[in-house]
Amino acid sequence: MRIFLEQMLNGLTIGSFYALIALGYSMVYGVMKLINFAHGDLFALGSYLGFTLLVWGNAYVTSHVGLAGGMIAAMLIAAIGIGIAGIIIERIAYRPIYSVGRLPAVVSALGVSIFLENIIMVIWGPRYQAYPVSVVPTLRFEIGGIHVTLLQIVILILSFVLLAVLYYIIQKTTFGAAIRASALDRDTAALMGINIETIIFFIFALGPALGGTAGVMVGMYYRQISFTMGWNYGLKAFTATILGGIGNIPGAMLGGLLLGVFEMLGSAYISTAYKDVFVFLILILVLIFRPRGLLGEKVAEKV
């Protein structure tokens, strides 16, 4: 039981990373019907941005703002930076070829992904980088035999707050309704007076910003980052998106959390070596038996 709870906690932690990244995929797909394969690398870029900020601001953080301040500042700046990067990528790599169709855009996304991965390698080098210990909370404690780190709790709380805020924006505000409407049917939404350009701008800023925040969290959690990390996280978050129902925001959150927990429990109780197998087995099973995902609405095929 103790081990089960511990693994649940670990699963929720990595699940919240997946959920944050998955939101970016889902929002973009919802409105654009485009799988933004560069999203994983934007996440990695966020991780490196946070790394650089914390290395530069190391002394300032420890002497002035404290760990919590440094952490939030790093996440905020990374979020803003990656949000801007997202907008730029949309302008340069996607907008010019929308009119051609969806497939060229996907190819373009793959190109951006390769470009970003290599740009990270060129700037920060091919070796592993490590978040400095002095700017990451290292406190750990035991509650009823369960080993927990302070960082884990902070990450869980922060990501749940982020998820809740986003959920509120999407489900309860007029602007959120506009996004959902555009996801349902872009042309009709435009006819109803929704400015699609604004919506696209917003999702291409917000999705990557969340991914960038997750990047800083992952960097702090494992403290070790590499320029290839984006691909793996991207793929898993994409799986989470499919699991929850692509284009569906609460679905992406649920899918991410579920996937994290599946991954952890599967490797704990069945086999560690097959950890990634569980993840992609879920992807295959969902695609076979419930292609619209857990929360996805059944959409009639447009003819």
């Binding site: 693994q7 990390m229 793996n232 490797s267």
Partner: peptide
């Protein structure tokens, strides 16, 4: 698994 970042499961074992 080489390249893996999360070893909480094997380490719990």
């Amino acid at each position: 698994t080489p390249g893996e970042k999360d070893f909480s499961v094997p380490l719990t074992k």
